[in-house]
Amino acid sequence: MTFRHYDGGGQATKSIGRTAIVVTAGKTDRKDWVDEIAAIRDRQDQAAFAALFRHFAPRVKAFLMKSGARPDMAEECTQDVMATIWRKAALFDPTRASVSTWIFTIARNRQIDMIRKERRPEPEELTWGPEAEPDQDDALGLAQDTERLGQALAALPEKQRKLIERAFYGDLSHSEIAAETGLPLGTIKSRIRLALERLRHTMK
């Protein structure tokens, strides 16, 4: 699997094997890290946490720095994000978000809190329907959808890719995004099929 990475100068470079890969039954799948989160939740497994840390912490810190955080602040925030993952492992639900999406939302929220010193209003949680047990197929489908989304992002022409980065690193305001016609929203949208029909939403 090939992922596109950016060096400090903003040049696109391709590198192979930077993202952990597991090979199962002749099929290459990106490691989804769901088992590590479960091990942290069930057994406070420090080895699982260390593996998760080695994989995610450098990426969280890189993301925070590209979003404008100074290195020392990004380091402090990254440690806080990783500690939050440990504490909130029981709240992770693989049918609602992949591990990478979940960690991103934690990093984003800690960044707003610690670096921007603002509150982050979050939507209220939905409760599950009658069949409350998270469905394995839903979790697998979501992980695969997210992986395909990542591949689509990596394969974007650099110009389009750059626009998405600028939106997420905070270089574009919402009105600038609205005015931007080159955003490849068609490419990245509707790749995540959330099992929303299983969510019970009874607000009047």
Binding site: H5, V60, S100, T101, A107, L153
Partner: peptide
């Protein structure tokens, strides 16, 4: 959110 997560995964390693 998933786009953000995937972008973070492709942000390189600090």
């Amino acid at each position: 959110d998933a786009v953000g997560g995937e972008l973070m995964m492709q942000s390189g390693d600090a």
